[in-house]
């Protein structure tokens, strides 16, 4: 492998990281375009829900950028953002179940992200695990064995 990670140039986007960059990128684009559309066309209907979608979009975008960029600082920022995301999805998920009236329109985080096959709940957990594992001085751990391909 040509990409050997050092602590300075920590590569967070190889192996499982590719999948995370892709999924976070999709959610960033999805949440952003959705909130832009909703905020610009019918802000008055459900301002809380639409503003939350915008906040979620920003969080997703920052995580996508951190994963793609790599390095120790990006890893730490990514960890914080994944934690914020997890707290957000748990809070909004519980809130939307306890008091459905607070959200006249759904957000990505309503019902713990059930409308998105629970990915909004799975992503931050996976992200936290990946970013924590990447802290090792030898770079991100990976279970991939390229020499096993073709079996």
């Amino acid at each position: 492998m040509s990409e050997t990670a050092t602590t300075a140039g920590l590569d967070l986007k190889r192996g499982p990281g590719r999948l995370l960059v892709l999924l976070y990128g999709i959610f960033a684009v999805g949440a952003a375009s959705r909130s832009i559309y909703q905020l610009s066309t019918r802000f008055d209907e459900a301002p809380v829900a639409y503003l939350l979608s915008a906040v979620a979009a920003v969080v997703y975008a920052v995580i996508t950028f951190c994963l793609a960029r790599g390095g120790e600082r990006a890893r730490r920022v990514g960890l914080v953002c994944c934690a914020v995301e997890l707290v957000g999805v748990l809070t909004v998920g519980t809130w939307s179940l306890v008091d459905p009236g607070a959200f006249p329109d759904a957000t990505v985080w309503s019902d713990y992200g059930l409308g998105y096959v629970l990915l909004p709940l799975i992503l931050p957990l996976t992200g936290l695990r990946w970013l924590r594992g990447a802290a090792a001085p030898t770079g991100p751990r990976t279970t991939t064995h390229p020499d096993r391909q073709g079996q």
Partner: peptide, 10 residues
């Protein structure tokens, strides 16, 4: 650029 299982998953 990811010639392994993670490329397939992507």
């Amino acid at each position: 650029t990811e010639r392994n299982r993670w490329g397939s998953a992507t």
